[in-house]
Design a protein around this nucleic acid. Structure first.
Ligand SMILES: [Zn+2]
Ligand SMILES: [Zn+2]
Ligand SMILES: [Zn+2]
Ligand SMILES: [Zn+2]
Lengths: 129, 129
DNA sequence: CTTGACTCTATAGTTACTATAGGATTTATA
DNA sequence: TATAAATCCTATAGTAACTATAGAGTCAAG
């Protein structure tokens, strides 16, 4: 299939597919006589792997590492484990930040008093301090 | 004070200060004879306002809007309210995403089985499906 | 044989910074 | 006073993960 169909089947935009290829996350596909990219179901699986990793917010660099690891099936999976643990730690850290952020935003929202002038608004006051 | 001291007092890097100035978040400071930026305590307050907003993850564009609003103290604060509410919605959305993400990562981490080969690792298997 | 849909590469834009490069200016020291 | 070190200046490029053009080539249908 050509890139248009590949894009629809994968749910990935054409630009993103070409971008992943440039970044080495997808193997260089065969080309037609007219230089069009040609994909098969194996390529689709590769892209779906990448998409799944991205949905977990794993960076392209880490995905590249995971792909390299996948190609060494005999080795120990401890690096894979470490990578996922690290990703989990990142998520936990972000969640903690977001909780603090939410608390302050909520406090601010309630500090407005509603229908004030900007001068008297509790939100602006709290941002100013 | 010159930008070095201003940077230390504000906790903002010199490059960031100049960047904020370029982006219109800080008023253009007076310059010394030798063209060095000169700041006073008013400028420090402005920068602290920006920093406070940034700590709430408000975008530079929205901060610019807030600054404009601050300069119209007589107007209604409803836009300020709306902006904060929108920010809160954004944070809630991200938190929801992160929760789902965390759940899947945890499940994956427990799927490894530990000390496997990559071929047999539950993590890789689950990423592949 | 021309139109329109599709594809190609290369390049620039996005956000919020950070990091140089190459110079000018000021301050401290010898 | 000469010079070295610290500080400052502008302009430009890099970061992550895309997205969006511009300008050209390819291909199927009418
Ligand atoms: Zn999944
Ligand atoms: Zn208000
Ligand atoms: Zn605060
Ligand atoms: Zn494992």
């Amino acid at each position: 299939m050509k890139i248009g169909e590949f894009s629809k089947k994968s749910g990935c935009s054409i630009q993103t597919i070409r971008y992943y290829e440039r970044e080495g996350l997808l193997l260089n596909p065969n080309r037609s006589e007219g230089n069009f990219r040609l994909y098969d179901s194996k390529a689709l699986k590769q892209l779906e792997f990448v998409k799944h990793c991205r949905s977990l917010d794993i960076s392209l660099n880490d995905i590249k590492r995971l792909i390299e690891l996948k190609n060494k099936p005999e080795e120990s999976c401890s690096s894979v484990n470490a990578l996922i643990d690290q990703q989990l730690a990142l998520v936990n850290k972000r969640m903690k930040e977001l909780r603090a952020l939410k608390a302050e935003l909520q406090q601010m929202a309630s500090a407005c008093g509603s229908n004030n002038t900007i001068e008297a608004c509790g939100i602006i006051k709290s941002l100013d301090s």
